[in-house]
C-alpha cells in the first residue's frame, strides 16, 4: 500500500511538472552559468563542502564524496 502511495505521489509530481518549464527557444537566461546549480560558483562549492565537513557534524546533500578526509 505504502509503495503504491509513493509511486502515485511521484507520478502526480511528474504530471504536475508538465505544466512547468519553458520551450526550447526560451532558455537564454537559464543557460547562463550563474543559473546552473553546482556550476554557478565554480570550485567554491567543493571548497566549502570540504571546509564545513571538517568543522561541523554534518555533510552531504549537495553531493557527496570528494576524496575523503581524516580531518582531525
Amino acid at each position: 500500500m505504502m509503495r503504491l502511495i509513493v509511486v502515485a505521489s511521484c507520478l502526480l509530481v511528474l504530471a504536475g511538472c508538465q505544466n512547468l518549464g519553458v520551450n526550447p527557444w526560451e532558455r537564454d537566461v537559464l543557460a547562463r552559468e550563474a543559473m546552473i546549480p553546482g556550476e554557478a560558483d565554480g570550485l567554491d562549492d567543493a571548497f566549502d563542502d570540504h571546509i564545513y565537513f571538517s568543522k561541523e557534524g554534518s555533510s552531504g546533500g549537495r553531493g557527496f564524496g570528494g576524496g575523503g578526509c581524516g580531518c582531525n
Binding site: L30, G61, G63
Partner: peptide, 21 residues
C-alpha cells in the same frame, strides 16, 4: 552514499533542485 536528485525548470527565470542523500 546514494543520491536522488530532481532538477526542475520552473519558468524562464527560475530553476530548482531538490536532492536526497
Amino acid at each position: 552514499d546514494a543520491l536522488l536528485g530532481w532538477t526542475q525548470v520552473m519558468n524562464r527565470r527560475w530553476v530548482m533542485q531538490l536532492n536526497y542523500n
